[in-house]
């Protein structure tokens, strides 16, 4: 499908590969950053509506320029490095948070053809990259040379690591059902003549719930946002950050939110597949499902009070891990019977 590019490829010679790769990165990252920016606006609007307010509406029509104004404000602000901080690590920590959040997008398929790197171990790559994000948190907390940031980092790191286990088990059931780690194949495994009923959402519904709630906890979102906790504490690991360094943590958080929404759509909601047999499969379905999952994130934030830290740990270790372990065994047994229809 890329035949028209060949003359350009010949012209550029060996420079072609880096340029082409950079181009692909830009094509993924720029819309992602735009989505992150407008997700913040959507969040403020939706939470506003649910609190019978109207949300930002002064900067531009419907508040549409608000994210740009916010971004500009953060860009202009000074990045203050505390005097006792380890300067190198302090600067590198937000980058370490954002980098994996962006790198993950290499393997995310948008539809049957549209994927940057269609690798076989896509899901494994995603798990590996998502786990790297916790280093940014720990390094940020330690490099700040502040006891508050340090305690916040320990808290967030423990939370992220705990929920990763339950999340991993939820994904194990998916790859048992799909018999593949390739995200494209996982979606294709959900293809069938019954549309919606062929999705893994039906047999793996508890795992879908576990995965999504773990995803909310993993991205430090309400009701698991003890890392930020703006109504109780100042912040967690990022207290000492300001300006764009601070914004990078949030870019990472929102990029991860979008990623969790994408993965939930791909693995449980049939990705780009149409929910009803008489409508064609299309990338539009993909974005609709992602938008719905993102809306759930905002809905949760507008509804639930924050978990206490011990409750949060209890939910992760004593509820989600047993349930997901049980379901792994159950799905395994189920797949050996003729009643497995997926």
């Amino acid at each position: 499908m890329m035949e028209w590019l060949e003359p350009i490829q010949k012209f550029l010679g060996p420079a072609w590969l880096p340029i082409w790769t950079l181009l692909k990165i830009v094509v993924i990252v720029l819309p992602l950053m735009g989505a992150v920016a407008y997700l913040t606006l959507a969040e403020r609007k939706v939470i506003g509506w649910m609190q019978i307010r109207i949300g930002p509406n002064r900067v531009g029509y419907f508040g549409l320029l608000q994210p740009l104004a916010d971004g500009l404000k953060l860009l202009m602000k000074e990045i203050i490095v505390p005097s006792g901080a380890n300067k190198f690590l302090f600067i590198i920590a937000p980058i370490l948070t954002l980098m994996p959040a962006l790198a993950v997008w290499a393997v995310v398929p948008f539809n049957a053809q549209l994927v940057v790197a269609n690798i076989n171990a896509g899901l494994l790559y995603i798990l590996a990259m998502a786990s790297l994000g916790v280093y940014g948190v720990i390094i940020a907390g330690w490099a700040s040379n502040s006891k508050y940031a340090f305690l916040g980092a320990l808290r967030s790191a423990a939370q992220i690591v705990s929920y990763e286990i339950a999340m991993g088990f939820a994904l194990v059931t998916v790859l048992m059902a799909a018999q593949s780690l390739n995200l494209g194949d996982i979606v294709r495994g959900q293809h069938g003549e019954h549309g919606l009923l062929n999705w893994y959402l039906i047999p793996l519904f508890p795992m879908f719930v576990v995965y999504f709630i773990s995803g909310v906890a993993e991205t430090n979102r309400a009701p698991f946002d003890v890392a930020e906790g703006e109504s109780e504490i100042v912040a967690g690991f990022h207290v000492e950050y300001s300006g764009m360094a601070f914004a990078l943590f949030f870019l990472g958080e929102y990029a991860n939110m979008i990623l969790v929404a994408f993965l939930a759509s791909i693995m449980f909601l049939g990705g780009w597949l149409s929910p009803v047999p008489f409508l064609p499969d299309s990338i539009v379905w993909m974005f609709a499902k992602v938008a719905f999952m993102l809306f759930l994130f905002l809905w949760f934030r507008a509804t639930f009070p924050r978990y206490r830290y011990d409750q949060l740990m209890r939910l992760g270790w004593k509820v989600f891990i047993p349930i997901s372990l049980l379901w792994v065994v159950l799905v395994g047994a189920w797949m050996q019977t003729p009643y497995w229809l997926w």
Binding site: W49, M50, Q51, I52, F300, T303
Partner: peptide, 24 residues
């Protein structure tokens, strides 16, 4: 089965469409 959580979400979901009280 998260009954109470779903109830809470139904409530906020309803309020999303309620008339807004903001005075501009």
């Amino acid at each position: 089965l998260l009954v109470e959580l779903l109830k809470g979400m139904a409530l906020t979901g309803r309020y999303m469409f309620a008339r807004k009280i903001t005075v501009q």
